[in-house]
Design a binder for these strands. Sequence first.
DNA 1: GCGGCAATACTCGGATAACAACTGTCCGAGTAAGTAAGG
DNA 2: CCTTACTTACTCGGACAGTTGTTATCCGAGTATTGCCGC
Lengths: 159, 159
Amino acid sequence: MKLSEGVEQGLHCALLLAEAPAGVPLPRRVLAEHYGLPEAYLAKHLQALTRAGLLRATPGPSGGFRLARPADEITVLDVLEAIDGPASPFVCQEIRQQGTGAARPEECTRPCAIATVMVGAHQAWRESLRAVTLDQLVKRVPQTLRKRNRAKFGSDPAA
Amino acid sequence: MKLSEGVEQGLHCALLLAEAPAGVPLPRRVLAEHYGLPEAYLAKHLQALTRAGLLRATPGPSGGFRLARPADEITVLDVLEAIDGPASPFVCQEIRQQGTGAARPEECTRPCAIATVMVGAHQAWRESLRAVTLDQLVKRVPQTLRKRNRAKFGSDPAA
DNA sequence: GCGGCAATACTCGGATAACAACTGTCCGAGTAAGTAAGG
DNA sequence: CCTTACTTACTCGGACAGTTGTTATCCGAGTATTGCCGC
């Protein structure tokens, strides 16, 4: 089992967008250079985030990506499932019903015990990620770094 | 992210070994036919479980695999990490320290906030799997099926 | 000076290759059982 | 009848291809800006 690296890239970009002043779109080129990531590959993930309704993309000059919702209404789980897909890593193949020792249908009224355990673990994992929002992550970024980023992208008229 | 199907196969086989009377080795051929699985592929996973010290393999006629420890001392997490590897699905690439917006070393005294969240979720997932033992899973198998399996492999002199 | 228009440059979006991991398979080394011969 | 050595068949173990998913990349469609021309 290996989590896509695009998830980490997407999370960092979403976090940076949450740091930047609202209403200031950041193009993918800026995002890629800011973190030293391959731009063309990052595009795929930003696109996934846009399709999921987390980001809003605007084309043309001075365009780019910005958060579609307030940072405190976007959880880490949202970003992760938008990029990696919402499918559970474990899918029960109903092994118990196959082969010479197959269980009969009337013995399978309850779901497979193994699948139940795996689903429970997956839920615990999801809950742990759902409990953290982008806004909370921003607060954990060192203030010196936050100020630097804000000065870099800032220039927002509202300030 | 996708969990190897070998994990499910290994779990079912370990569960069946826990159902069978202790001291009666089951060859991989029997295990494969019992669940309708490809024998040669299953061998790879049983080998991994053996290397991890969960199973004990005995060669020669009337040989096979048996649990190396009591069923209540083997957790689902043990089986899973033996087959899938103990590596975390998320590995921090330290993106924050790369690119034009790289954070300085003195700003990285604390671990990356994103990595912290991911590690926490992974721990929650592991704890959920560590809490369940093979013995507990056996008790959730329908009694009719347990009896059938025991009669199939049983013939243990202790009965 | 102002409005409209066209050219421009910048943005995102989907379709296309290269790589890696998982899946599936095979044959060889080793061992315990079974058998037959000898005592 | 018991012991012993051998033959046999069955087991696991590691090395070898096929297929799916992830990683990486490119070029085309669309749009807001910008400069220019006409009024």
